[in-house]
Design a binder for these strands. Structure first.
Lengths: 248, 248
DNA sequence: GGGGTGCCATGATGCAGGTCAAGGCACCCC
DNA sequence: GGGGTGCCTTGACCTGCATCATGGCACCCC
């Protein structure tokens, strides 16, 4: 994804790698915390060397001990089951928490891979849990993060079971656009960090279908796509298309 | 769903309607709690009059204040979006928690309806949250419940995006069987509390497809179905079929 | 009994999107 | 330059499942 604030972030990383000064604190875990709480949270967070594109944050089946907050870049979660093909279950953008679905079984249920150069904050879950005892706001934020992920999953199920290929792609772009907007980036112009194959896998379509529909959208003046560079030309129409009911 | 313990449960309801004596305590929230904690949890739980088939536990969009633990019976969660058709996102069985996906937005994201006579325990979330401050085991159990639901959702996404109609139905029956087994009921013989329409909606199929495939399964000696009465004849084969990779 | 209603089954037909195959373009390394 | 590799696009064809339509059965109420 594009990083208009790259320079600022580099500066911040070098000099104040703390929640207090992180540009994401209003979206991320510290959201509801007061000064003191943020400091305490900060104390248990470990920085990690940036991941390069294709680097693995953790592997499916390995022991769960940390959740990760995305600081910059993006990742995908991939689950392999049985003799089967992979299923891409999620993309993660800055401020989102990775690994919450591992708490229950104490093992990560999928492999998480960086889609580009990516930095994350590593948070040992047992310490986070203990800290959430003393900080009701942190606890609430954790509950909310998980609850939001549940809601998003339900939306995804709806997409997969009731929407046509066109609507899936429209939803995907509208969703990305919205996520960028909330993070302060342009909702109209961005660079995809994921390949067509990733998108099609995530949306439950064939790569060819994604390609064709993107072409069609282009023809209809909805978007302008060139490789991974995306310009959304008619967001309202895209949103309308995404919300229209499936033909089922 | 069938209730071999109905008499015992009625007895329990009348005389000791408490977590301490609930037959589900080893599956439900009190799972990891000690005596003392169970009592405290018990103190904030409200009983509710049993719901009859078709009764609504709460409506989509109404204010969130409680989560509910299913005590007996079963429910479905239905989400209506836009101008559209309903999407059935979940079935809930005894010991499962309903409403966890409402925390984030403070409104229930779907309507929850009883599929048969159903009793639930009503738990005000703010009090549960506060109690989870003092009881780390309760907190852990809450985190685990949500995490498990996240994992189940991912499995559902996989089902919806990669599995054929046959595999979806095989997964559905194998899953139900497993859930009954864990609750101490027969994994081979049970009564569906949901209609074919519910099943097809949940699995992202047409009712007709469900009907046809059930017929085929019957012919193959996998199950014997008569109305809502189900006998699983070859669970291993069903499981194998469910796990086979989609043809995509 | 007759007719209404809800739920399920089955048959005929069509289409959205998967599959297979081939080609284009950017980039890299020898 | 040439050839390899990764990623995307486009075209031709085919199939799994939705859709439409009809009928059966159980149950209820008049």
């Amino acid at each position: 994804m594009r990083h208009p604030q790259t320079t600022a972030e580099r500066h911040e990383l070098a000099y104040h790698p703390h929640c207090q000064t992180c540009s994401l604190s209003s979206l991320c875990l510290p959201l509801a915390l007061k000064e003191r709480g943020t400091e305490q949270l900060d104390a248990i967070i470990r920085r990690r060397a940036p991941l390069k594109k294709g680097d693995i944050l953790f592997r499916q089946g390995s022991d769960f001990d940390c959740v990760y907050a995305v600081r910059s870049g993006s990742l995908k979660q991939v689950t392999t089951e049985g003799s089967g093909e992979d299923q891409l279950t999620n993309f993660y953008l800055p401020s989102e928490l990775v690994g919450l679905d591992a708490i229950d079984e104490d093992r990560y249920p999928g492999t998480v891979v960086a889609l580009e150069t990516t930095t994350v904050c590593e948070i040992p879950f047992d310490r986070l849990d203990r800290l959430s005892e003393a900080l009701p706001e942190l606890r609430g934020q954790l509950y909310r993060s998980m609850s939001k992920e549940l809601r998003d999953d339900r939306r995804m199920m709806r997409l997969l079971s009731r929407k046509t290929a066109d609507q899936r792609l429209a939803s995907f772009f509208a969703g990305l656009s919205e996520r960028f907007r909330r993070r302060g980036y342009s909702p109209y112009s961005f660079r995809l960090s994921m390949s067509r194959a990733d998108i099609s896998n995530y949306l439950g379509l064939a790569v060819e279908t994604v390609s064709r529909i993107l072409g069609r959208f282009q023809g209809q003046g909805l978007v302008a796509v060139s490789g991974r560079e995306v310009n959304i030309l008619d967001l309202p129409a895209l949103t309308r298309l995404a919300e229209e009911e499936g033909v089922h």
